[in-house]
């Protein structure tokens, strides 16, 4: 666990993740308060990455649950292993037969059998999915519920019990409570609004594009082969490009791709010509590229 906000920043930096004080504060608080975090923000600002680096920095197990439309309990919480149950019944047929042979009536047989049915609905036949796994784990665990906005609102509803009490109720067995509370991170791309009930159970963190200074630090850390001069020019251009009205703004991961590419090309300065030729690395739409080319004077230094 992080001991202070500053320590959180330092530990994450060791994992090559530069974060602002805002991000670190929320992470630190969430750990202290044992609450989940709902992370929102544009695509590619490192929401998922944040979960990964927290896990590796604190040596936690990382469990990841990717949400999609139609994701249900069976895929997220737990499932009974029907096939195994059937198989066992087949194998144990003889035993069942001999066990029931002494019973005279059907009613007695059913009674005897129902006394044993717990065997078939025990954790031996339970297939835990990420959420249940995170609860049953004996080690500190980080559960990353990715792109929660892609799931249905029903799914959100049955997350509620888990998020507030870190427990899951299984009708056949009872309530499974976490021995060690997992650290939960939910990410959302704002495809839809989350329900108030879910938000109330979480701390909220909005990650925006980083400041110029912060992004320079990120690039320097991740692409050390880039000269500091190039990094400055590159980040400045990216920020200028983001200010234009684009269909899809370049995110941090695109800045990094660009920096890597320029380093491979062995450039020391970002001249307009090189920039134009490599624009397709950071912009995904033809229209956006054209727009940037039109505004080249404003965007590029050389």
């Amino acid at each position: 666990m992080f001991q202070s906000v500053d320590q959180a920043i330092a530990s994450l930096e060791k994992e090559k993740y530069i974060c602002s004080k805002e991000i670190a504060t929320t992470v630190y608080l969430a750990m202290k308060m044992e609450k989940p975090i709902l992370v929102e923000g544009p695509a590619g600002v490192g929401k998922t990455e944040l979960g990964k680096v927290i896990a590796s920095s604190l040596g936690m197990d990382l469990l990841r649950l990717q949400c999609y439309e139609g994701l249900d309990e069976a895929k997220a919480l737990y499932e009974w292993e029907y096939a195994k149950q059937l198989l066992y019944t087949q194998i144990l047929k003889d035993m069942l037969g001999s066990m029931l042979s002494n019973e005279k009536t059907l009613a007695d047989a059913v009674k005897k059998l129902s006394g044993e049915e717990d065997v078939f609905f025990s954790d031996k036949f339970l297939l835990p999915r990420p959420i249940l796994m995170s609860i049953m784990s004996k080690k500190p665990t980080l559960l990353l519920i990715d792109e929660i906005d892609k799931s249905d609102s029903e799914f959100e509803a049955f997350l509620l019990e888990f998020l507030s009490d870190f427990q899951v109720s299984i009708p056949e067995i009872g309530t499974v409570r976490a021995a060690i509370k997992p650290f939960v991170l939910l990410t959302s791309n704002n495809a839809r609004e989350m329900s108030d009930a879910l938000k109330r159970r979480c701390l909220h963190l909005y990650i925006d594009y980083p400041s110029q200074e912060l992004e320079e630090k990120i690039v320097t850390l991740k692409v050390p082969e880039c000269s500091s001069h190039l990094v400055r020019e590159l980040v400045k251009s990216v920020h200028a490009i983001r200010a234009l009205q684009l269909k899809k703004e370049p995110s941090i991961s695109e800045t990094l791709d660009w920096a890597k590419a320029l380093a491979i090309l062995g450039r020391d300065v970002l001249d307009a010509e090189t920039a134009m030729d490599t624009l397709n690395l950071i912009l995904k739409y033809e229209k956006d590229i054209e727009l940037v080319k039109k505004n080249a004077g404003k965007v590029f230094v050389h």
């Binding site: 906000v5 602002s20 004080k21 805002e22 504060t25 929320t26 630190y28 608080l29 202290k32 308060m33 709902l38 929102e40 923000g41 704002n190 609004e193 108030d196 938000k199 109330r200 979480c202 701390l203 909220h204 963190l205 909005y206």
Partner: peptide, 25 residues
């Protein structure tokens, strides 16, 4: 949350309030 942070850093203080009170970006 306030029990866990100091008030001396403005960024931390502001974020503490923001992260616990504001749920809609």
């Amino acid at each position: 949350a306030l029990g866990h942070v100091g008030f001396d850093d403005r960024h931390v203080f502001r974020q503490t309030l923001r992260t616990s009170l504001v749920k809609d970006y």
